[in-house]
Design a protein around this nucleic acid. Sequence first.
DNA 1: TCGATCCTGTAG
DNA 2: CTACAGGATCGA
Length: 269
Amino acid sequence: MPELPEVEAVCRKLRRDALGASIVQLRVERPSVTRPQDPAHLESETPGRRIESIERRGKNILIHLSAGHILHIHLRMTGNLYVIPDVRFRPSLARLWIELDGGRGLIFEDSRVLGKVHLHPAAHLARVLKDVGIEPLSSAFTLDNFTRAAKASSQPSKIFLMDQRRVAGLGNIYAAEALFRARVNPRQSARSISKPKLANLHTAIQDILHHAVSSADAAYAEPGHFAEGESFPCAVYDREGEPCTICGKPIRRIAQGGRSTYFCPRCQR
DNA sequence: TCGATCCTGTAG
DNA sequence: CTACAGGATCGA
């Protein structure tokens, strides 16, 4: 489910619920979630450590623990991370769980088991994140930097936006929505986007992500409800055949990089 | 740049 | 039953 806004919402909720807590025990129910790391390594190294801070980089969640270690979590497609009041009542899809002091549970839930949980020494953080690109909601995301990245890429614009090494955090939904908002054709190469459209795209990315963070944050704040942020109204995503909200032409779906891309063939040229 | 892979769930 | 899923990586 998660792109940058949902991951951000997860982090905010985690900060409210888990900051300062200590780890009593950690259990890996599905060894593949820590691969290639040994589950026993996480289970033996984490107890006794305290959760000192929680950071997001792109779609990566970094839980800084005491004594210089970091839990690095990626939710991929179906992952979720949240605190429950009593770890004994964890859900069956909990692939990894942590008992916090006081008996609460920090749950890594993931139906498809594509997500990852790793433990790193804090000193290795830079190496772990070396391929994570510009944060689109940070001051580093200037039009200049964005333009530089686009001009260096011969990829189709949609693939370019989803490339985490360029801009970190956009996924299939918000990449499509940003391209629609800026009227950019998803098949057009990134380097060929006109200057004004590039500026529009730069703004659209920030606007959409800001809006989506608010919606996701509000949705995730609902106690006990960990649903997807359906609150964000998509203009093109998953709307194949429906009329474009601008021109009325049917939204089209094409395949790019093995994923579905939705766009308006008239508005996005 | 494509296809396979990692997995499971759900919609058609 | 098949197709597809808001992700990322790998090899051909």
